[in-house]
Design a protein around this nucleic acid. Structure first.
Lengths: 218, 218
DNA sequence: ACCTGAACACCGTTCAAGT
DNA sequence: ACCTGAACACCGTTCAAGT
């Protein structure tokens, strides 16, 4: 089968999801595709360009279809959920995506869509940008934690079977007198309904933003 | 001069800030400390343990001193700012920090402090955890973008002089008919007052959380 | 146009050996 | 207790050579 940029990106994404970014090497991808290492370079200029392709692939998974009948708050919610949904489809690839500058068309489309929505309901340029950034910050930050790589205690079953990740469950073993709440609430902290948590924060944000709007809208 | 864990971590942090995480290698750190590579392993068990040390160092920079006279909203704000402040002191090391599970005492202390504050003003266990996570999500997500590695358009002068980062300025060159707002607002999008942006979102969040509280407080 | 092996300048870490 | 060089099994990428 012919080697293509698409197949190479797909192989990289598979490998990232299965073993993590650190396991990705041009040599391993080539092996997986039954080709020589150097063959990859006929379709992809470098490893970092390949990872950029992965990022673009992840972001192109965002479903932008909005219900124009819905309230603008619901449209904001839908957009935020679509972003989150695309990232969650490939959690480890999503980490790669949010760890590099956004330059691809797929990434900019998200920004464009969000700005359009906010401008259309009366937000000024400056506030529109700030609100979008706040939502992106929240969505990305939540996902980082959820995937188990950010502050806030490691939350769930690890994605891989690496011991390095498994050992993260050691909230037990903390000094309860130093961390009474963390130890006492470890059940709360460890096993979470991430979707419910996300909706909780999303509602707070939408509510906050919705209170902000009328004051500035013409 | 004697080699110590502290000196090794400090050298790693310097290297990370100057050239980025990818430039960090045990060999380069050793060279910088005028020692053999293997000497490092007498003080640090592995490279990944070394990076965990970096993360702990970053998190230990959080200043937890709160004014007990202040309103709880102001205390929440102060805590959020202290977290952000510590991360911004070493932006590239902060990226390393938020990219790995939080297990160190310094990291857990942040969670403990935040939970204590929220519980003391009447939030239930579940809401306290959710609120803290929302703030962490926002702070971390904002910083990711601000440092220039997350979606939302590359914002500022790159930290290093690498061409790979410099080329990120190419919002010019986009098709204005496809991205009218992004291209039209590129000035807004590119040069930002990050502190003002952060305070903007922080205020919205605090306001949202403050509206949530009375409904549940006893 | 597409493929490729050899080679180069790097990695992290094990091990056996030094003081 | 602390240090270290050689060696091993890896990297990404250049280059010259093949079809």
């Amino acid at each position: 089968m012919q080697l293509t940029r698409e197949r190479i990106i797909a192989a990289a994404m598979e490998l990232i999801e299965r073993e993590g970014v650190d396991a990705v090497s041009m040599r391993r991808i080539a092996a997986q595709l039954d080709s020589g290492v150097m063959t990859l370079y006929n379709h992809v200029p470098s490893k970092s360009a390949l990872l950029e392709g992965v990022a673009e692939q992840v972001m192109s998974g965002i479903d932008f279809s909005l219900d124009p009948e819905a309230s603008w708050e619901d449209q904001v919610r839908a957009l935020a959920r679509a972003f989150r949904h695309a990232l969650r489809a490939y959690p480890r690839c999503a980490m790669v995506t949010v760890s590099r500058p956004a330059t691809s068309a797929a990434e900019l489309r998200t920004m464009e869509q969000a700005l359009t929505l906010l401008r259309s309901v009366g937000f000024g340029e400056e506030d529109a940008v700030r609100v979008v950034r706040m939502f992106i910050g929240y969505i990305v930050g939540s996902l980082l934690r959820e995937v188990g790589v950010a502050p806030g205690l490691v939350p769930q079953r690890p994605l891989g079977q690496d011991q390095s990740v498994l050992q993260a469950d050691r909230v037990v073993g903390l000094d309860p007198s130093e961390f009474p709440l963390v130890t006492g609430m470890s059940a709360e902290l460890m096993q979470r309904d991430h979707d419910a948590d996300f909706e909780f924060g999303l509602n707070l944000l939408v509510h906050a933003v919705s209170e902000l709007r009328p004051a500035r809208a013409k």
